[in-house]
Design a protein around this nucleic acid. Structure first.
Length: 741
DNA sequence: GGAGGCCTCGGAAGG
DNA sequence: CGAGGCCTCC
């Protein structure tokens, strides 16, 4: 985007600040954080750090994490902060508190308070704090606000429908003097209401500025008439929408195809085949295609089919590089070197690789730090003189750990990011630990860490352009140190991180991440009830409308051709389930659809007794349920050898599905997976486990089933093991073998 | 203290 | 199915 602006306005574009709210505000806070008593080297907690901290607090407070689910607690705190409530405001607000007591969570306000204080003590901000603290900074320090008001004489916001309250209020403050503010948004594409985005901001905007000019952008320059018409016919079903009339001057284009498959794997096969044909027939490139899905889990069957047909693809999102355990571990070491108060980083690595500092010791350190309002880093450093209640042997180990971290702190300022990073990774023992694991997964972990170190090397050495170009008064630092690297990546997403130079690949992503993008050919897959629209949305009008807007976004990604697809059965969480066509299919103006029409023109009435669509003409022979795991490298370049090398050792045998070879259990909804369990211990099908039979368990040995209770798949067996006593085991997990007498 | 197995639970998403 | 928490056993 910056490059495009530069083409219009020239080099001056280099001085403008552009980024997400979070990255722009984090950049301000890196300079100003001391004014609100944070260190400028503050850590940014990701949501895993936040949840882990909440889990700790719950334990300390003896609260049940089934009642106070960490994700729910975090959401609650998050939404309060996004509405600019401090923990005090929260506790004083009867709407919040009475709601909490009526849902049986009266301690929520206290958790909010403790969570905030613990983050502060650790020198850490979570994602919401980046907004919240920017607001505080501007409120409490008018001179700082004034400085940025004059720095940003013009403010523009894209995707305005996705802003939350805090973001809007801060932007309003920034624009308050010059009043040069321009926002662009589309209510029909609001797909983040579930996390606090507020469509109300668009309406408020009209009230907040009297000298307002509104421009309706109703001409679509991207898509064919067919696609625009289809999108309009879908969105009109929503009651809650701003009236507009989107049209296009483009050609009619092709009708929308609907592919129907028996299984998710077959759907993948059909989609891949269709891409292959279009590529050949229309001389298109891989990058002209996108496959969009509702949930990341759907990528697997697509990836497999593309791989088999040698079509290069790239999966966006999913488990990102920076979310992998080995990467987070190493980054936690770096975080310690930069901000040793960072409690979550400390917890992660103080005993990894193991150095004899166990859970009990860590708990005592934290307990002591909480009771004495001290940060954990000071406790660790002074472990020998403080009455923490740890024996001297372990005290020495803790002290050594602190000494190691201190030595890195000293190196921080006069070593490059790479020098320090490679030093840390050897000194802390992670490299050796990972190197010694010669399993395929272990090798992969080691390679990932090497890849991270290579990235840091690049950052340190060849002066990679920083994400945010320095403004005039900011000098480019002579030495690119590790703290600068961490700032650079803390707010990165996968999309910013395409290393592989070859970008001529089919794009696979969720519809959420496809917003703002466009492709010549788009496949929207998995158009089934309870998947799209999501099962969790179908009971609420508002949520269903958000799903529909999501479908609208998906349709409008396509320039020339749109293909929809659905499967009669698919694996979800290991179970084969059957599904019904999505209601959204019926909402599309049928004039836009090119029906496969096996019987007349009905899409839905040809479901056969197996729960599948009988008359479909695809090739089933290569459809099977594979089990190859994603191996970290989610990008595939079309080299079959490379792929098989990487996965051969993790690939599992497969079970054929589809065609006439339908396995038992095909029709059962929610039945246990027919996929064989592969391990040294071969288990029997749970249906064979009945009262009276003799069974063998890998660990407990032989026993007799004396009762079965509950319904599949939650059914449990009570088994009397020889010499082990009676145990209750969930059949879907316990690997049991029937012993023939 | 550490390893390994059992069991629970899962949403889409950004930062 | 897979990740991660937790419990148990050594």
């Amino acid at each position: 985007m910056k490059e495009r602006i530069q083409k219009v306005v020239g080099d001056e574009a280099k001085n403008l600040w552009m980024g997400t709210f979070h990255s722009v505000f984090a950049r301000i806070l890196r300079v100003e954080a001391d004014k609100i008593n944070y260190p400028t080297n503050f850590t940014i907690y990701d949501s895993d750090d936040s949840k882990s901290l909440i889990r700790d607090i719950l334990k300390e407070q003896n609260l049940d994490d089934k009642i106070y689910k960490p994700s729910v607690v975090l959401n609650r705190i998050s939404s309060a902060k996004n509405n600019l409530y401090t923990w005090k405001d929260y506790q004083d607000n009867t709407d919040y508190t009475s709601d909490d007591s009526s849902t049986g969570k009266p301690k929520m306000g206290m958790l909010f308070e403790m969570y905030s204080k613990r983050c502060f003590k650790a020198g850490a901000m979570d994602f919401d704090d980046i907004l919240f603290n920017t607001w505080r900074l501007f409120n409490e320090h008018p001179e700082v606000l004034y400085k940025y008001q004059n720095k940003f004489k013009y403010v523009m916001v894209d995707e305005f429908q996705d802003t939350n309250f805090a973001q809007y209020i801060i932007v309003k403050k920034l624009a308050a003097i010059h009043q040069n503010i321009c926002v662009v948004g589309d209510d029909a594409q609001s797909i983040y209401a579930f996390r606090g985005a507020n469509i109300q901001n668009i309406l408020n905007f009209e009230k907040d500025y009297d000298e307002l000019k509104t421009f309706k952008l109703e001409q679509n320059y991207r898509s064919t008439k067919t696609i625009v018409q289809a999108a309009n016919s879908v969105i009109v079903v929503n009651k809650n929408q701003l009236k507009k009339d989107v049209w296009t001057d483009n050609h009619n284009g092709e009708k929308i195809r609907v592919l129907k498959a028996l299984s998710d794997n077959e759907e993948g096969y059909q989609v891949a085949s269709s891409i292959f044909e279009d590529k050949m027939n229309k001389q298109l490139q891989n990058k002209d295609f996108a496959i969009l899905y509702r949930t990341n889990a759907q990528s697997r069957s697509m990836e497999e089919a593309l791989r088999k047909q040698n079509i290069p693809y790239r999966v966006f999102g999913g488990v990102s590089f920076y979310n992998r355990k080995e990467i987070k571990d190493l980054l936690a070491y770096f975080r310690m070197a930069i901000n040793p108060q960072d409690e979550e980083a400390m917890k992660r690595i103080i005993n990894y690789p193991t150095r004899g500092i166990g859970k009990t010791t860590v708990d005592r350190i934290i307990e002591f730090s909480v009771l004495n309002s001290e940060n954990t880093w000071n406790v660790i450093q002074n472990i020998n003189t403080l009455p923490v209640g740890i024996n001297s042997g372990i005290r020495d180990k803790v002290f050594e750990f602190g000494k190691m971290v201190r030595s890195w702190q000293i190196m921080l300022k006069d070593h490059s990011a790479y020098e320090l990073a490679s030093h840390i990774s050897s000194a802390c023992g992670i490299l050796t630990e990972l190197y010694n694991d010669r399993t395929p997964e272990g090798v992969n972990h080691y390679e990932n860490v090497q890849a991270l170190l290579n990235g840091i090397k690049e950052f340190s050495e060849d002066g990679k352009i920083p994400l945010e170009a320095p403004s005039a008064e900011q000098e480019l630092p002579a030495l690119r140190t590790l703290d600068l690297y961490l700032q650079d990546i803390a707010l990165l997403t996968d999309a910013d991180n395409e290393k592989d130079g070859d970008d001529n690949k089919v794009a696979l992503m969720t519809i959420h991440s496809a917003k703002g993008l466009e492709f010549k050919h788009v496949h929207i897959v998995g158009l089934e009830e309870n998947l799209f629209p999501s099962q969790l949305s179908v009971n609420s009008r508002a949520e269903l409308e958000e799903e529909r807007r999501l479908f609208y976004v998906a349709i409008t990604r396509a320039e020339q051709k749109l293909t929809l697809s659905l499967a009669a059965t698919r694996y979800r969480w290991g179970n084969l389930i059957s599904s019904q066509p999505s209601r959204f299919l019926e909402e599309i103006d049928s004039a836009c659809l090119d029906m496969p029409a096996p019987k007349g023109n009905a899409l839905f009435d040809d479901v056969d007794e197996r729960g599948g669509w009988g008359s479909y003409g695809g090739n089933t022979q290569s459809n099977y349920r594979g089990n190859s795991k994603s191996n970290g490298n989610k990008s595939y370049s079309g080299s079959q050898t490379k792929y098989s090398n990487k996965t051969s050792s993790t690939a599992k045998p497969t079970t054929p599905i589809g065609g006439n070879d339908v396995p038992k259990g095909f029709k059962k909804v929610g039945s246990a997976s027919p996929t064989p369990i592969i391990s040294d211990f071969v288990a029997d099908d749970p249906s064979k486990i009945v009262v009276g039979v003799q069974v063998e368990h890998q660990r407990f040995g032989r026993g007799q089933v004396i009762a079965i209770e509950g319904r599949v798949p939650e059914n449990k067996a009570t088994i009397l093991f020889d010499g082990q006593g009676q145990k209750q085991l969930l059949l879907k997990f316990a690997k049991l073998r029937v012993v023939e007498d």
